[in-house]
Design a protein around this nucleic acid. Structure first.
Ligand SMILES: [Zn+2]
Ligand SMILES: [Zn+2]
Ligand SMILES: [Zn+2]
Ligand SMILES: [Zn+2]
Lengths: 132, 132
DNA sequence: ATTAAAATGTTATATTATTACATACTGTTA
DNA sequence: TAACAGTATGTAATAATATAACATTTTAAT
């Protein structure tokens, strides 16, 4: 088991909202939606997002500037993320593939650089969009 | 051999500047530096960047919102990119590793989604920064 | 109680990117 | 060459994303 971390008030509000969402959320869309909970300023959102990312509860989908709840329990340890992104419907899902993560975690290039983190984003058309 | 593409005036100006640079460049830093060449507005830069990305002459380093010239001739065809990023000195280099690209290009997940593009960013400390 | 670390509140501002609309250039075909 | 389509450009305004700076409060461990 990994360490349980108690979220602060703002962190919990923002995590709850992201977790309920079916798609990645933008920071300002989060802000707009949690204003009724007392969160007023962008910085309050960004600070919570930073912390949630740090502890692996959410990820940033870099190519979309959007945030998504983690679906793979191992991310709270590993900082190794992979996503599948549909360019048409913008559906994003986290790839949870042990072979892939093992391959990438062990990847070594010729520069002698050692990696402690990676982010991979695959793009294409999802099953639904492909058949339309 | 792949098709040679003639760059337009603005595209050439901006590509030349990015290619000479040793590190990834930000859009507004590019803008500032090419103003003496007659490029006045952000949109002129972003339009050129979009085109250069489309044809594979440059890439966007998503985690840094920065742009870097392609060092691997295969990118003008493939749209498959991988970078190594030092979190301390911010050095970024394109990884040109046939095994890696083959592995990722052929990667299939269980959703039946087929990918035509990916972007991978590895993070860590480069050789120099590690020994300091 | 003291203290340090983490979190919050608030305002202002910086940075990154796009919309909208008018115009001009380039190459192809009738 | 005239017409056309596609691409590229110019310009102003604005949208969207993210951080700086500073004051205060909460939390949790000594
Ligand atoms: Zn995850
Ligand atoms: Zn789709
Ligand atoms: Zn490349
Ligand atoms: Zn370094």
């Amino acid at each position: 088991m990994h360490k349980e971390i108690n979220l602060s008030k703002n962190q919990q509000i923002i995590f709850d909202f992201i977790e309920k969402a079916k798609e990645p959320l933008k920071a300002y869309s989060i802000l707009f939606n949690v204003q009724k909970k007392g969160i007023k300023a962008p910085l309050q959102v960004y600070r919570a997002l930073d912390k949630l990312i740090e502890i692996g509860k959410i990820h940033k989908v870099e190519s979309r500037n959007a945030f998504i709840a983690c679906k793979s329990s191992s991310c709270e340890i590993s900082q190794a993320t992979a996503f599948s992104i549909c360019n048409k419907c913008e559906n994003v899902s986290e790839i949870n593939n042990p072979k892939l993560s093992k391959y990438l975690t062990n990847f070594e290039d010729d520069t002698g650089m050692q990696y402690n983190k990676y982010n991979l984003e695959f793009f294409g058309l999802c099953k639904k969009c492909k058949t339309k």
